[in-house]
Design a protein around this nucleic acid. Sequence first.
DNA 1: CTGAAAGCGCTAACAT
DNA 2: ATGTTAGCGCTTTCAG
Lengths: 341, 341
Amino acid sequence: MTETAPRPTLEAVAARAGVSRATVSRVVNGADGVREPLVERVRRAVEELGYVPNQAARSLVTRRHDAVAVVVAEPETRVFADPFFALQLRGISKELTAHDNQLVLLLTEGRDDHARVGRYLAGGHVDGALVFSLHLDDPLPGLIQRAGVPTVFGGRPGWSDGTTDVVYVDSDNRGGAREAVRHLAGLGRTRVAHITGPLDQTSAADRLDGYRDVMGDADPGLVVRGDFTPAGGERAMRELLDRCPDVDAVFAANDLTASGALRVLRESGRRVPEEVAVIGFDDMLPVAEQTDPPLTTVRQDIEEMGRLMARLLLGGLGPGDAGAAPTGVVLPTTLVRRTSA
Amino acid sequence: MTETAPRPTLEAVAARAGVSRATVSRVVNGADGVREPLVERVRRAVEELGYVPNQAARSLVTRRHDAVAVVVAEPETRVFADPFFALQLRGISKELTAHDNQLVLLLTEGRDDHARVGRYLAGGHVDGALVFSLHLDDPLPGLIQRAGVPTVFGGRPGWSDGTTDVVYVDSDNRGGAREAVRHLAGLGRTRVAHITGPLDQTSAADRLDGYRDVMGDADPGLVVRGDFTPAGGERAMRELLDRCPDVDAVFAANDLTASGALRVLRESGRRVPEEVAVIGFDDMLPVAEQTDPPLTTVRQDIEEMGRLMARLLLGGLGPGDAGAAPTGVVLPTTLVRRTSA
DNA sequence: CTGAAAGCGCTAACAT
DNA sequence: ATGTTAGCGCTTTCAG
C-alpha cells in the first residue's frame, strides 16, 4: 500500500533553486520585486519538482480559501429534476472557475442539515456563499446571515423586509408576466387565465402580480393555483375548463405547467392557439421546444443569473459588512414567440 | 467595514476551561481518555465561545480534508438538463454528509478545464474523487488517474481495458436491456427494434449488446441510432417506420428517447401498445409517468448509485494503491410495467 | 531585491 | 489521564 508520495514543499523548491523560501513564495504568488534570473530559476525548480502549493497551509495564514459554498435547500425532489437549477449552477461554476475559486456544494434535506450548513459556513471554510432559498418560511437564510459570511441569494428572498440589505439576483418575473399577458391581450383575447406556481415562492407570487397588473380585477375565477409541475398544470387546466369554459388564453407560471395545460387542452379538443392561446415562462428548451405546439414563453437567462451571483460575491460586498452593499439586481426577460400564442 | 470577528482558537477554549490545548483537542475530536468532568468543562467552554475548529490548520497536520471532488465532464448541455446526474449527485451528497465530508463540484467545459482539474486533484485538496466520464475518448480519466487520488467512476469507463483496476459503479445495462427485449418477445412481438443511445458511451453500447443478446442477428435494419434525446427518438422512429413498417415493438435506449418515439408513433396513427409496444430505460419519473401512454421501462436506482460511489470512496480503496482494489460493482435493474408494453 | 524568522491553529508524540 | 512540545507548509514583516 504505497503511501501517497510526499509532495514537494516550498522548502524543497527553494533548495533546488538555491534561494530562500520567501523568494519562491513571491514567485509562486506572482508578487513583483524579484529579479528576472531568479524568477527563471525558481520557475524551473517548480516545474522540475512538480510543486503545487499546499492550500491548507496557505489558508492557515491568509485566511482565504478561494472557495465558495453553494447552498441549495431541497425540500422537494422536484427542485432537482428541474433543469433550472442545473443551469444556474453551470453559470456559477464558470464564473468561479474564471476566478480560480472552488465550488463547494451544500445540499440540504431537512432540519438537521440546516444546522450542519450553519456550522460549516460559520466555520469559515469558504469565502462566501451563494444561496438558493426557495420558500418564504425557510429558516436557512436566517442561519446563514447569522454565520456572518458574505452571501448572495438566488431569487428574491421572500422574507426580506426590504430594509435589511440582502444581496440577490433575480429575473424580472413581474415584468415578464406583464409582457406575456399583454401579448395575449394584444391577440384579442379577453378571457385570459393564469395558472400560478406555488405562491410561497417569490417568483410565483411576482408572476401573479404581473398578471394582475395587466388584468386588473378580472374574473378571479380565471386564476387557479398550480405548482410548477406538469401534473399541477393538468389539474389546474381541468379546473379552469370546468369553471370558465369560455377561457381563450392561459398564462402558465412556467413551461412545465404550460406543458400540462397543453395536454389537457388537446385532450379536451380545444385547438391551440386558435381557440386557446398558451404562454409559459422560463424558456426551458427541452420543454418549450418539444411541446405540441411549440410553446411561446418568457425567457430568462438562467445561466447568466448564476454567473452574476458569483460575480457579485467575488467582486466585493465587504465581509460581514452591513453598510453599503448593493441589494437586488434583476435581470430582464424577453418574450419568445413560437406557435402556442 | 467590520473585519470578520476573529474566531476563537483552541487556545482560547483551553484557557477558558482551564485545561491544555491537547485536552480540548481530544474532546473536540471525540478521542476517549478524558475524564467526564473535564469533558463537561471543555464542552461548555466550546459552547460559550462558539468555537469551531479551523479546518485549514487541521488539514495541515492531518493531511486529510474531509472533502471529495465530484468531477463532471460536460461536453454537452444535455448532460445537465438530465435529471439523471442530479439524482446521482443527491445520493452522493447524502452519503458524504453522513460521513461529514464536503462535496467539491468540478464542472469541466473543455480542454483547459481539464488541466485545471488535474492540477486541483494533484494538489491534494481532496481525499478522493468521484468522476463521471461520459465518453470513450475522454482524456479526463487518464489525467485523474495520474493525479494519484483515490477515484471511483460513475458508469463503466469505456477506456478500461479490463486489466487495470479502475473502481466504478454501474447499472446492469446489458441485463436490463435483455429483460426489456425478452419482455417484448414474451408479448409475442417478433419485429422488435432498438433505438440506441450515443454508442460512445458504455451505457448505450451495453444496452445495445443486451438487445443483441436476445435478438441475435435479427434484421439489422431494426437497429437505429439515437442520442438519448427526445428529438433523436423522433428522428429514429421516423426512420424506423420508414424502413420497417412492420415493426411491432421498440426498445428505446432511454426514457427520453422513448418519449420522442411515442410522439411519432401517435402522429403516425399507430396505437401503443396494441400495434407497437414501447419500452424505455431509466424510469425517470417525470418522463416515464407523463408519457401517453405511461411508459413501461427498466428502472435503475440512480440515487443509490451515487450513494454507493461515495461509500466505496470513503470506505477505503487505499490511496494510489494499484493492488487489491475492488473493481466494478454493478447494480441490478428492474422492469417496471406501465401501459406502453 | 533577497533572506531570516515568526507565527497561522491544530494534532500527535512524548512526558509526566 | 493530562500537559508539553514540536512541527505541518506557507506568508509576511523585518533586517540586511
